[in-house]
Amino acid sequence: MPKAESASTPAVEQLQKGEPGPGVPKVDPILIAHGVKRTFGGMTAVDVEHVEIPRGKITALIGPNGAGKTTFFNLLTGFDKPDTGTWSLDGDSLAGVPAYKVSRRGMVRTFQLTKALSLLSVMENMRLGATGQSGERFFPALFKGSWRKREDEITAQALELLARFKLDTKKDDYAASLSGGQRKLLEMARALMSKPRLVMLDEPMAGVNPALTQSLLGHVLNLKNDGTTVLFVEHDMHMVQTIADWVIVMAEGRIVAEGYPATVMQDQAVIDAYLGAHHDTDLGSLTGQLEVAKDLDDSFLVDEIKSEIAEEEKPDGE
């Protein structure tokens, strides 16, 4: 598989050990996944041999539709169970750990289809993201005195985050009254309430207008500045180029390329994944078809096309 030229690597901090490529080990990984496989019936949705996510950086997970990005997200966060595979956050194994415990261990996700809790107020949405509230247990919940202090701290933290995401004026409105973009912001802010180590954003920019996209990008960058690791799924290459430090490309369930955003898009495997391996082959000509047949490793087809070419090359009338 062709690898990105190391010569074209930009003069930034080196994240990987060795040449960038699928499964390359990282200098300081926060998440390491190994042999993660998920099949739906006969279809292999995810088959990741090895991947490491660099700590304190923004990593983009890209790939065409159906590449298995969201399924991989679901597996890592415990929302789906793989057939095989292990993965760990800072050395703590997360394989087989239920989703709520994954979140408690510091790996919080958002969803592609925004899941704002519509009939709770914006503030209640935020408070729900907090940890360490004893009033969430049944019997302590009955005694307001026992949880009021923590509730005040949570409220203060939520207000601060809401102000950062410019949602503070909406705090008493139902989340249902927010616009689509504001719900994305709320979901991201809510995920930050638990001060996670790794934030996983599933298509944070999908369906968001350009102006809000800029503000979302700013928030993602701020996360990095605060020391949080970000892994996000995205389709828009321009956005990936702007903020990502590292790019992982998936196609047909596998990781086909990894590298720095400036170089990874020149990788032949990435171009093949997005445009098809034979996007510049003329399938109307026999020579083009021969090329594809050779690629498919179908000797019968190769012979047939070769004889057809020989037929064509004979002068007319013979």
Binding site: F79, A99, Y100, S103, V108, R109, L117, A191, M193, S194
Partner: peptide, 9 residues
């Protein structure tokens, strides 16, 4: 699922 993603059982 949203509540689950926020660490609640």
């Amino acid at each position: 699922d949203a509540v689950r993603s926020l660490g609640k059982n």
